[in-house]
Simulated scan of single mutants.
Amino acid sequence: MTWDRINCPQKEETLLKIITWKNGLFTSRVGRVTKIDRYAKKIKILDKLDSEFTLNFFDIIDVKLK
């Protein structure tokens, strides 16, 4: 799997509120994007507690600045 790293410090420190829809449920997460995989259509997010999670592009329905 190939991951592209975002090297711009401003983007790495920007907190985002990401709302997803999966299996009939809305989920809201706050964090910053650390990696983007444009081929697998996934992004990696690091939250305030330094927990990393992966989201599928197609599950994301809204992104806002936090």
Rank of each mutant, 00 (worst) to 15 (best):
K42I: 12
M1N: 03
I19V: 13
P9H: 05
R32Y: 04
L65C: 02
L49M: 01
P9R: 04
K42H: 14
L16Q: 07
I60D: 06
K41F: 12
T34H: 10
K17Q: 04
N56M: 08
R38V: 06
P9S: 08
R38K: 10
F58W: 06
T20F: 01
I36A: 02
E13M: 12
I60E: 05
L65I: 09
K35F: 14
I60M: 01
I45T: 08
G31P: 00
N56S: 11
N56F: 11
K22I: 09
V30F: 07
L25S: 12
K41Y: 14
I18V: 09
K44M: 15
I6C: 02
R5L: 13
T2M: 14
R32L: 01
V30E: 06
D62M: 06
I36C: 04
I60H: 06
I19A: 00
D59S: 04
L55C: 03
I61T: 06
T54H: 01
L55E: 04
T14Y: 01
W3H: 13
T2L: 15
D37S: 15
W3Q: 12
D62I: 00
K41M: 14
I6Q: 08
N7I: 08
T2K: 13
W3E: 14
V30M: 08
R38C: 09
R32E: 03
T2G: 14
S51A: 05
K42A: 02
E52T: 11
T34E: 11
R29C: 01
D4M: 12
D4Y: 10
E12N: 14
K17V: 00
N23W: 05
W21I: 08
K17T: 07
M1Q: 10
K44W: 15
F58S: 10
C8W: 03
D37C: 15
K48Q: 13
P9Y: 10
D47Q: 04
A40Q: 15
R5I: 14
L15W: 06
V30R: 03
I6W: 00
R38Y: 10
N23L: 11
K64M: 02
T27S: 06
I19N: 02
E12P: 00
I61L: 01
S28F: 04
T20K: 05
N23S: 13
K11V: 05
R5C: 13
S28T: 08
K64S: 06
T14L: 09
L46C: 14
D50A: 11
F53I: 08
K11T: 02
K64A: 02
K41D: 12
A40M: 13
K44L: 14
D47H: 07
K35N: 15
L25Y: 12
T2P: 15
I60L: 07
W21A: 02
T2N: 15
T20P: 07
K41R: 15
F53N: 02
C8E: 09
M1C: 03
K64T: 03
T34R: 11
K42F: 10
I6F: 08
N7P: 00
L49I: 00
K22T: 07
K64W: 02
T34A: 13
V33Y: 04
D4N: 11
I6V: 10
